[in-house]
Nucleic acid binder design. Structure first.
Lengths: 242, 242
DNA sequence: GCAATAGTGTCTGTAAGACAATATGTT
DNA sequence: AACATATTGTCTTACAGACACTATTGC
């Protein structure tokens, strides 16, 4: 430890975003195709460096997303997912990245921006099963993000964030099934919703222009936490060891 | 956005540690008295900057703790608590700090190190109620850390980390009461432990040299997660709104 | 025997898990 | 009438919440 001349090393701070949404019955995430080196042409999470040394991390995250994908998350909650900091994770030097998780309702297609040759929705399953490879350590981030989303659906009312302002209970059930990756019993699910104060509140009387019996519509309620939590039906909690 | 000449701003990376332990029936945390500017003389969490630009964050955290308090956490789990990054949080410039939570068994007193005029255990309650003020935004970190510890006691077998290798069930109950800040019903607590596979396993037959009936001793079991979770007795889950 | 701490059993209410039939629209 | 989707009820089981007494040691 040098005494007088040592200065802390300088490190680059990055923000990366994992933006999740639902398309049909499947979970999708937003990826760009990198337009600049390194890893040009590879798929990656949207993100980038701080602009200046007084920029807030959340501001930078929203700015990068806007620049790269033309998506505006100003009113969307960003949740800190983790810090990714392995010394060799980026060839440009030491880069410490804060990953944020965002969840958005069903949206239109994003548009490619300055630093991205392309920005598109991809199926999460394609990333997780390795058929779509990501740059850097972004697979780690995606893995963590999916697990986080699953947990949050258990204990918070986050699921409504996947839905349009007005939604039916089937829509909401579909969210759970997509994120959890398995079927949910409708009757138990409805009962749970009825007993969960503040999860959903009835909205405009009814109806959908589709086939079958029209569905009652709801809006997201004022509640944020779910107690008791929503439980994944026959989930394997057996492993009490790691 | 300048095109060719712009370089990302350089930022200092810090690590801070919140080390929790139990002393008697109370929750304590480790604080140093700052030996250097800024905020010399004030109480703060142990921590510091990365040493060089290839140092792992966890390595840096353990190194700083060793330097400042002579406590060795090599075998202790460090849990990322959060990222603290407000632009004005440190007068030396832009400092982004990763806070880690560590939990240690009842220990002896730490010793002051190079950068710390003193390192001592302080009651968490004194920090939370404002009677002990901390430097920087370390109060935020402590607040988050306590809440995190409370949650982790609900869903993981973390509580055993507060105990010596061999402990009685009363010892464990005392951990819950200290962290949760209220009484726990002994009978329900014992029942819960019996039904939780892998939480604790019986150790050396028995006994304690103290008064009263000798206690059976246990060791931490192989389990890490608790399902169903341990619930704080009459906790206010009523607020389903924020 | 008294003090001190360790350990246990029962009743009740809430909610999860499993399971199938009915209601209300459209074509 | 046939189809498609929405909605609801019962029985059983697991577990939390409340609550008080017995057991084992040292003195």
């Amino acid at each position: 430890m040098p005494e007088s001349e040592w200065v802390p090393p300088s490190v680059l701070i990055a923000v990366d975003l994992m933006v999740l949404t639902l398309r049909g019955p499947h979970l999708y995430l937003l990826l760009i195709e990198r337009g600049i080196e390194p890893m040009r042409g590879q798929h990656a999470l949207p993100g980038g460096f701080l602009n200046h040394d007084r920029e807030e991390l959340l501001t930078a995250a929203r700015r990068e997303l806007r620049e790269e994908t033309s998506i505006d998350l100003d009113s969307v909650h960003l949740e800190l997912l983790g810090v990714y900091s392995k010394p060799d994770r980026d060839p440009r030097g030491r880069v410490v990245s804060m990953a944020y998780l965002a969840i958005v309702p069903r949206l239109g297609d994003p548009q490619a921006g300055t630093d991205a040759a392309g920005a598109r929705w991809h199926r999460v399953s394609a990333v997780l099963d390795g058929s779509l490879q990501l740059a850097f350590d972004h697979l780690d981030i995606v893995t963590d993000g999916v697990e986080r989303a699953r947990q949050m659906l258990e204990t918070t009312t986050l699921a409504t964030t996947f839905c349009s302002p007005q939604f039916s209970l089937s829509d909401l059930q579909e969210v759970y099934e997509a994120v959890w990756g398995g079927p949910v019993d409708t009757r138990n699910f409805y009962r749970k919703l009825r007993r969960s104060e503040g999860f959903v509140v009835p909205a405009g009387p009814v109806r959908q222009g589709a086939a079958g019996r029209p569905a009652r519509l709801y809006r997201a309620g004022p509640g944020t936490s779910l107690y008791p939590p929503m439980v994944r039906d026959s989930l394997i909690h057996s492993r009490s060891e790691e």
